[in-house]
Nucleic acid binder design. Structure first.
Lengths: 144, 144
DNA sequence: TATTGTTATACTCTATAACTATA
DNA sequence: TATAGTTATAGAGTATAACAATA
Protein backbone atom coordinates (compact mmCIF):
# COMPACT_ATOMS: atom_id res chain seq x y z
CA UNK A 1 0.00 0.00 0.00
CA UNK A 2 1.63 3.22 -1.11
CA UNK A 3 1.12 6.63 0.42
CA UNK A 4 -1.27 7.71 -2.30
CA UNK A 5 -3.53 4.70 -2.28
CA UNK A 6 -6.64 5.51 -0.31
CA UNK A 7 -7.95 2.52 1.55
CA UNK A 8 -11.12 1.41 3.25
CA UNK A 9 -11.31 0.14 6.78
CA UNK A 10 -11.67 -3.37 5.31
CA UNK A 11 -8.28 -2.92 3.71
CA UNK A 12 -6.65 -2.25 7.05
CA UNK A 13 -5.23 -5.58 8.13
CA UNK A 14 -5.74 -5.22 11.90
CA UNK A 15 -9.43 -4.49 11.26
CA UNK A 16 -9.78 -7.31 8.76
CA UNK A 17 -8.01 -9.73 11.09
CA UNK A 18 -10.22 -8.69 13.96
CA UNK A 19 -13.41 -9.22 11.96
CA UNK A 20 -12.21 -12.57 10.63
CA UNK A 21 -11.19 -13.67 14.11
CA UNK A 22 -14.56 -12.72 15.57
CA UNK A 23 -16.57 -14.37 12.81
CA UNK A 24 -14.48 -17.52 12.82
CA UNK A 25 -14.84 -18.13 16.53
CA UNK A 26 -18.49 -17.22 17.05
CA UNK A 27 -20.02 -20.60 16.33
CA UNK A 28 -17.40 -22.60 18.17
CA UNK A 29 -17.60 -20.27 21.16
CA UNK A 30 -21.35 -20.79 21.33
CA UNK A 31 -20.81 -24.52 21.12
CA UNK A 32 -18.46 -24.95 24.09
CA UNK A 33 -20.39 -22.44 26.09
CA UNK A 34 -23.78 -24.06 25.49
CA UNK A 35 -22.56 -27.62 26.05
CA UNK A 36 -20.02 -27.21 28.80
CA UNK A 37 -20.47 -23.69 30.11
CA UNK A 38 -16.85 -22.98 29.22
CA UNK A 39 -15.17 -19.69 28.48
CA UNK A 40 -12.38 -19.26 25.95
CA UNK A 41 -9.51 -19.71 28.36
CA UNK A 42 -11.17 -22.76 29.90
CA UNK A 43 -11.47 -24.42 26.49
CA UNK A 44 -7.81 -23.66 25.84
CA UNK A 45 -6.75 -25.17 29.13
CA UNK A 46 -8.84 -28.28 28.48
CA UNK A 47 -7.32 -28.49 25.03
CA UNK A 48 -3.79 -28.48 26.37
CA UNK A 49 -4.41 -31.08 29.06
CA UNK A 50 -6.37 -33.28 26.68
CA UNK A 51 -3.93 -32.97 23.84
CA UNK A 52 -0.55 -32.97 25.56
CA UNK A 53 -1.35 -34.76 28.81
CA UNK A 54 -1.13 -33.69 32.43
CA UNK A 55 0.93 -30.61 33.17
CA UNK A 56 1.22 -27.72 35.59
CA UNK A 57 -0.44 -24.33 35.21
CA UNK A 58 2.95 -22.83 34.44
CA UNK A 59 3.45 -25.13 31.49
CA UNK A 60 0.04 -24.20 30.11
CA UNK A 61 0.94 -20.53 30.42
CA UNK A 62 4.02 -21.02 28.29
CA UNK A 63 2.56 -23.36 25.68
CA UNK A 64 -0.70 -21.50 25.20
CA UNK A 65 0.58 -17.95 25.70
CA UNK A 66 -1.88 -17.25 28.47
CA UNK A 67 -1.09 -15.15 31.52
CA UNK A 68 -0.92 -16.99 34.83
CA UNK A 69 -3.86 -15.05 36.27
CA UNK A 70 -6.11 -16.20 33.45
CA UNK A 71 -4.97 -19.79 33.76
CA UNK A 72 -5.46 -19.64 37.51
CA UNK A 73 -9.07 -18.58 37.16
CA UNK A 74 -9.78 -21.04 34.37
CA UNK A 75 -8.30 -23.94 36.35
CA UNK A 76 -10.31 -22.93 39.39
CA UNK A 77 -13.54 -22.83 37.37
CA UNK A 78 -12.80 -26.15 35.67
CA UNK A 79 -12.03 -27.80 39.00
CA UNK A 80 -15.27 -26.49 40.48
CA UNK A 81 -17.21 -28.04 37.64
CA UNK A 82 -15.27 -31.32 37.92
CA UNK A 83 -13.50 -31.16 34.57
CA UNK A 84 -10.08 -31.51 36.18
CA UNK A 85 -8.28 -32.32 39.43
CA UNK A 86 -5.15 -30.86 40.96
CA UNK A 87 -2.42 -32.84 42.68
CA UNK A 88 0.41 -31.01 44.44
CA UNK A 89 3.85 -32.30 43.52
CA UNK A 90 5.62 -33.81 46.58
CA UNK A 91 9.06 -32.43 45.65
CA UNK A 92 7.88 -28.85 45.13
CA UNK A 93 4.56 -28.04 46.64
CA UNK A 94 4.23 -24.79 44.68
CA UNK A 95 3.45 -26.91 41.61
CA UNK A 96 0.26 -28.83 41.02
CA UNK A 97 -0.26 -31.42 38.32
CA UNK A 98 -3.48 -30.71 36.48
CA UNK A 99 -5.33 -33.74 35.20
CA UNK A 100 -8.60 -34.02 33.31
CA UNK A 101 -11.34 -36.09 34.94
CA UNK A 102 -13.39 -38.57 32.88
CA UNK A 103 -15.86 -35.75 32.24
CA UNK A 104 -13.00 -33.49 31.24
CA UNK A 105 -11.63 -36.03 28.82
CA UNK A 106 -15.06 -36.58 27.32
CA UNK A 107 -15.51 -32.84 26.88
CA UNK A 108 -12.07 -32.60 25.29
CA UNK A 109 -12.80 -35.37 22.82
CA UNK A 110 -16.10 -33.78 21.84
CA UNK A 111 -14.63 -30.27 21.54
CA UNK A 112 -11.60 -31.51 19.66
CA UNK A 113 -13.83 -33.15 17.09
CA UNK A 114 -16.04 -30.07 16.93
CA UNK A 115 -12.94 -27.93 16.42
CA UNK A 116 -11.88 -30.11 13.52
CA UNK A 117 -15.32 -29.76 11.97
CA UNK A 118 -15.33 -26.00 12.34
CA UNK A 119 -11.84 -25.87 10.91
CA UNK A 120 -12.85 -27.96 7.91
CA UNK A 121 -15.80 -25.69 7.31
CA UNK A 122 -13.69 -22.56 7.54
CA UNK A 123 -11.10 -23.78 5.06
CA UNK A 124 -13.55 -25.45 2.69
CA UNK A 125 -13.84 -22.43 0.33
CA UNK A 126 -10.08 -22.33 -0.23
CA UNK A 127 -7.45 -24.40 -2.00
CA UNK A 128 -4.79 -26.18 0.02
CA UNK A 129 -2.25 -23.67 -1.17
CA UNK A 130 -4.37 -20.72 -0.14
CA UNK A 131 -4.83 -22.19 3.30
CA UNK A 132 -1.11 -22.83 3.58
CA UNK A 133 -0.36 -19.22 2.67
CA UNK A 134 -3.02 -17.98 5.08
CA UNK A 135 -1.52 -19.98 7.92
CA UNK A 136 2.02 -18.94 7.10
CA UNK A 137 1.06 -15.26 7.14
CA UNK A 138 -0.95 -15.56 10.34
CA UNK A 139 1.82 -17.43 12.14
CA UNK A 140 4.24 -14.68 11.23
CA UNK A 141 1.89 -11.86 12.19
CA UNK A 142 1.06 -13.59 15.46
CA UNK A 143 4.81 -13.89 16.09
CA UNK A 144 4.74 -17.60 16.87
CA UNK B 1 -7.42 -31.24 8.00
CA UNK B 2 -8.57 -34.84 8.09
CA UNK B 3 -10.08 -36.64 11.06
CA UNK B 4 -6.85 -38.42 11.85
CA UNK B 5 -4.54 -35.46 11.75
CA UNK B 6 -3.82 -34.34 15.27
CA UNK B 7 -3.42 -30.61 15.51
CA UNK B 8 -2.03 -28.06 17.87
CA UNK B 9 -3.89 -25.05 19.14
CA UNK B 10 -1.80 -22.96 16.74
CA UNK B 11 -3.26 -24.97 13.88
CA UNK B 12 -6.79 -24.08 14.88
CA UNK B 13 -7.69 -21.14 12.68
CA UNK B 14 -9.91 -19.26 15.14
CA UNK B 15 -7.05 -19.31 17.66
CA UNK B 16 -4.46 -18.34 15.08
CA UNK B 17 -6.68 -15.54 13.78
CA UNK B 18 -7.26 -14.30 17.29
CA UNK B 19 -3.54 -14.19 18.09
CA UNK B 20 -2.71 -12.50 14.79
CA UNK B 21 -5.50 -9.96 15.28
CA UNK B 22 -4.30 -9.13 18.77
CA UNK B 23 -0.65 -8.81 17.80
CA UNK B 24 -1.39 -6.78 14.71
CA UNK B 25 -3.47 -4.18 16.50
CA UNK B 26 -1.41 -3.73 19.66
CA UNK B 27 0.94 -1.02 18.44
CA UNK B 28 -1.67 0.95 16.56
CA UNK B 29 -4.06 0.76 19.51
CA UNK B 30 -1.39 2.18 21.78
CA UNK B 31 -0.76 4.95 19.26
CA UNK B 32 -4.32 6.32 19.02
CA UNK B 33 -4.86 5.86 22.70
CA UNK B 34 -1.69 7.68 23.73
CA UNK B 35 -2.11 10.52 21.25
CA UNK B 36 -5.83 11.09 21.23
CA UNK B 37 -7.21 9.07 24.12
CA UNK B 38 -9.34 7.13 21.66
CA UNK B 39 -10.82 3.67 21.98
CA UNK B 40 -11.20 1.26 19.09
CA UNK B 41 -14.74 2.22 18.18
CA UNK B 42 -13.89 5.90 18.39
CA UNK B 43 -11.02 5.49 15.94
CA UNK B 44 -13.33 3.61 13.59
CA UNK B 45 -15.95 6.34 13.75
CA UNK B 46 -13.31 9.01 13.09
CA UNK B 47 -12.04 6.94 10.19
CA UNK B 48 -15.44 6.79 8.56
CA UNK B 49 -16.19 10.47 8.93
CA UNK B 50 -12.71 11.46 7.79
CA UNK B 51 -12.62 9.08 4.87
CA UNK B 52 -16.17 9.17 3.55
CA UNK B 53 -17.35 12.56 4.79
CA UNK B 54 -20.19 13.59 7.06
CA UNK B 55 -22.83 10.99 7.76
CA UNK B 56 -25.31 9.90 10.40
CA UNK B 57 -24.66 7.38 13.15
CA UNK B 58 -26.89 4.91 11.34
CA UNK B 59 -24.73 5.06 8.23
CA UNK B 60 -21.62 4.40 10.29
CA UNK B 61 -23.31 1.41 11.86
CA UNK B 62 -23.96 -0.11 8.46
CA UNK B 63 -20.64 0.73 6.80
CA UNK B 64 -18.44 -0.21 9.75
CA UNK B 65 -20.50 -3.12 11.10
CA UNK B 66 -20.76 -1.58 14.53
CA UNK B 67 -23.84 -1.84 16.71
CA UNK B 68 -25.75 1.39 17.28
CA UNK B 69 -25.11 1.34 21.03
CA UNK B 70 -21.35 1.29 20.45
CA UNK B 71 -21.54 4.07 17.89
CA UNK B 72 -23.74 6.10 20.21
CA UNK B 73 -21.20 5.93 23.01
CA UNK B 74 -18.26 6.59 20.70
CA UNK B 75 -19.94 9.63 19.15
CA UNK B 76 -20.79 10.97 22.57
CA UNK B 77 -17.18 10.59 23.73
CA UNK B 78 -15.81 12.16 20.55
CA UNK B 79 -18.19 15.09 20.84
CA UNK B 80 -17.21 15.65 24.46
CA UNK B 81 -13.56 15.83 23.44
CA UNK B 82 -14.38 18.14 20.50
CA UNK B 83 -13.42 15.77 17.70
CA UNK B 84 -16.85 16.07 16.07
CA UNK B 85 -20.09 18.03 16.11
CA UNK B 86 -23.68 16.92 15.64
CA UNK B 87 -26.30 18.76 13.62
CA UNK B 88 -29.88 17.52 13.66
CA UNK B 89 -31.41 17.21 10.20
CA UNK B 90 -34.37 19.59 9.74
CA UNK B 91 -36.46 17.13 7.72
CA UNK B 92 -36.09 14.27 10.18
CA UNK B 93 -34.96 15.26 13.60
CA UNK B 94 -34.17 11.68 14.61
CA UNK B 95 -31.06 11.93 12.42
CA UNK B 96 -28.01 13.97 13.17
CA UNK B 97 -25.24 14.72 10.73
CA UNK B 98 -21.89 13.96 12.30
CA UNK B 99 -19.02 16.16 11.21
CA UNK B 100 -15.39 16.18 12.24
CA UNK B 101 -14.05 19.39 13.75
CA UNK B 102 -10.68 20.75 12.70
CA UNK B 103 -9.13 18.76 15.55
CA UNK B 104 -11.01 15.68 14.40
CA UNK B 105 -9.79 16.10 10.84
CA UNK B 106 -6.22 16.57 12.04
CA UNK B 107 -6.45 13.44 14.17
CA UNK B 108 -7.89 11.53 11.22
CA UNK B 109 -5.08 12.59 8.91
CA UNK B 110 -2.47 11.61 11.44
CA UNK B 111 -4.09 8.28 12.24
CA UNK B 112 -4.71 7.50 8.61
CA UNK B 113 -1.04 7.99 7.88
CA UNK B 114 -0.08 5.95 10.93
CA UNK B 115 -2.43 3.18 9.80
CA UNK B 116 -0.74 3.12 6.42
CA UNK B 117 2.65 2.82 8.08
CA UNK B 118 1.54 0.00 10.36
CA UNK B 119 -0.02 -1.74 7.39
CA UNK B 120 3.19 -1.44 5.38
CA UNK B 121 5.13 -2.87 8.28
CA UNK B 122 2.75 -5.76 8.72
CA UNK B 123 2.85 -6.77 5.08
CA UNK B 124 6.55 -6.12 4.57
CA UNK B 125 7.63 -9.75 5.20
CA UNK B 126 5.32 -11.08 2.49
CA UNK B 127 5.11 -11.01 -1.28
CA UNK B 128 2.30 -9.13 -3.00
CA UNK B 129 0.71 -12.40 -3.95
CA UNK B 130 0.83 -13.71 -0.39
CA UNK B 131 -0.79 -10.53 0.89
CA UNK B 132 -3.45 -10.76 -1.80
CA UNK B 133 -4.23 -14.34 -0.79
CA UNK B 134 -4.25 -13.39 2.87
CA UNK B 135 -6.73 -10.58 2.25
CA UNK B 136 -8.94 -12.72 0.06
CA UNK B 137 -9.15 -15.43 2.72
CA UNK B 138 -9.79 -12.97 5.53
CA UNK B 139 -12.50 -11.14 3.59
CA UNK B 140 -14.27 -14.43 3.00
CA UNK B 141 -13.90 -15.61 6.60
CA UNK B 142 -15.09 -12.23 7.88
CA UNK B 143 -18.09 -12.57 5.57
CA UNK B 144 -17.67 -9.17 3.99
C1' DT C 1 -46.11 1.04 14.60
C1' DA C 2 -41.41 1.64 12.88
C1' DT C 3 -36.99 3.99 13.17
C1' DT C 4 -32.94 6.63 15.29
C1' DG C 5 -30.51 6.96 18.94
C1' DT C 6 -29.72 6.56 24.27
C1' DT C 7 -29.31 4.32 28.69
C1' DA C 8 -28.78 0.41 31.71
C1' DT C 9 -26.92 -3.90 32.58
C1' DA C 10 -24.36 -7.99 32.36
C1' DC C 11 -20.80 -10.74 30.70
C1' DT C 12 -16.27 -11.54 28.59
C1' DC C 13 -11.60 -10.42 27.90
C1' DT C 14 -7.25 -8.15 28.98
C1' DA C 15 -3.70 -6.17 32.00
C1' DT C 16 -1.38 -5.17 36.18
C1' DA C 17 -0.32 -4.81 40.99
C1' DA C 18 -0.24 -6.89 45.33
C1' DC C 19 -0.37 -10.89 47.78
C1' DT C 20 0.46 -16.03 49.78
C1' DA C 21 3.03 -20.02 50.02
C1' DT C 22 6.95 -22.46 48.93
C1' DA C 23 11.66 -22.91 47.69
C1' DT D 1 15.23 -13.51 46.89
C1' DA D 2 12.92 -16.04 43.32
C1' DT D 3 9.05 -18.80 41.66
C1' DA D 4 4.06 -20.78 41.29
C1' DG D 5 -0.10 -19.50 41.82
C1' DT D 6 -4.10 -16.41 43.82
C1' DT D 7 -6.85 -12.33 44.53
C1' DA D 8 -8.33 -7.67 43.57
C1' DT D 9 -9.24 -4.19 40.47
C1' DA D 10 -9.75 -1.51 36.45
C1' DG D 11 -10.31 -0.93 31.70
C1' DA D 12 -11.96 -2.33 27.37
C1' DG D 13 -14.97 -5.08 24.28
C1' DT D 14 -19.42 -7.35 23.36
C1' DA D 15 -24.45 -8.19 23.60
C1' DT D 16 -29.15 -7.29 24.67
C1' DA D 17 -33.22 -5.28 26.60
C1' DA D 18 -35.75 -1.31 27.60
C1' DC D 19 -36.46 3.26 26.70
C1' DA D 20 -37.31 8.29 24.56
C1' DA D 21 -38.12 11.00 20.69
C1' DT D 22 -39.56 11.33 16.17
C1' DA D 23 -41.79 9.86 12.09
Amino acid sequence: MTDDTPFDLQDFLPYLLNQAAEMSSLDFQRYYKARYGMLRTEWRVVFHLGHYGDMTAKEICIRARIHKTKVSRAVSALEKRRFLTRTPLPDDRRHETLKLTAAGRAAFRDLYRAAQDFEANLTAPFTDEEVATLRRCLVKIAKF
